[in-house]
Nucleic acid binder design. Sequence first.
DNA 1: ATCCTTGGTTAACAGCGTTAAGTAGTAATT
DNA 2: AATTACTACTTAACGCTGTTAACCAAGGAT
Lengths: 208, 208
Amino acid sequence: MEEVKKQNLKLQIIEAAREVLLSEGYRNLSLRKIARKIGVSATSIYLHFEGKDNLVHSLIEAAIERLNESLKLALPEKGGPINKLEKLAWAYVNFALTHPREYQIIYLVSSDEMTRYPKEKFRKARKGYKLVLQVLQEGIAEGIVDEKKPRIASYTFWAQLHGVLSVVLSKRLDTRIDQEEFIEEAIDHIISSYRQKTSLEAEELDRI
Amino acid sequence: MEEVKKQNLKLQIIEAAREVLLSEGYRNLSLRKIARKIGVSATSIYLHFEGKDNLVHSLIEAAIERLNESLKLALPEKGGPINKLEKLAWAYVNFALTHPREYQIIYLVSSDEMTRYPKEKFRKARKGYKLVLQVLQEGIAEGIVDEKKPRIASYTFWAQLHGVLSVVLSKRLDTRIDQEEFIEEAIDHIISSYRQKTSLEAEELDRI
DNA sequence: ATCCTTGGTTAACAGCGTTAAGTAGTAATT
DNA sequence: AATTACTACTTAACGCTGTTAACCAAGGAT
């Protein structure tokens, strides 16, 4: 059992950190608590990570990968582009709603809440973006999607979705507004803006 | 000068806190630092606030008010609804870009980053939402805006905008993408989704 | 002259991230 | 076989944090 424990202290740390994050939130995530959880001294963490920020970066990375995995699984092989965009959007939403703390940590990388997330790590984050780009280009080819700058458009797609979730998760929504209805409405808006204005019929067909 | 100093220690605290926040970020905002800045003991803050979270809530409230003020000023009295939405969107963006830390603190109220923002305070936050609601209803009346649920729509409007800014401010944007172009494109998308599909001509007229 | 209130203070607690120095156990060298 | 070097940790300590409890000095009311 020793060789099992050996190098995977790093894994144990990440795992424990994730557990604390999911159960108690970022606010209550401390190195000492993580260390206590796996029966090790807090300073041991420095053997595997440069510091707390660095450890959290790993959590972010892992969260992004899990999110991307969900997206990849949700993208159907068949069906029109509008349908595909809808599937992607809902996969994104569902991930965020079922793992809110894990989702939120992804966007915790705000400019001063933490050491800047190393830009080389963003490459992984771009997988989700590429999925949408692909779908958009497919839609453009078929004349169903109206987009001059698909690269930018696929970023705005995620950005808008994130905004919607950000409002929902931070509970800023007016209590008189039903959360689910809000999300549905928002996704409708977002997707409709990518749609070729003259191809409303195509959209109807697409839905079936 | 004493009666000046009297009850406005509270104001001094808020002011100092805001200064620290703007210059050093939320991460480096500590009660002791604020207290030091105005030559008072840290525990004095507890005479005016329940604790740090409570103080930060005040900062949030102030930031929301400043943002709302910008929006109100930016809303023209004349012009079509689409034009008005554009003006509001840009005012929002400009506020966020010129005071990024102040803007970001508004959305810091995530579920576990801080004690829940008291929901009664959200009423003030809804002023901006009402501005959009008003414009949307105006547009619906004129047949230029296509919206069945304007209440919800005005929330999705802000949510989408926030998402765009969130991506920009957290510097998650692909370096190959120009920030300004991204924002313009995104605003275009957001606004176009509220537009009546059959009234593209109206939009053109609106622009002039 | 005493009491109570207002508006602060100091001291202390428990916890934090991080650094420096030390220490067992194992592997390699002589 | 003895010594050295390395690996994977630990303990101690620094300076910071939010927060609580106890104290204190000045002013107004009784």
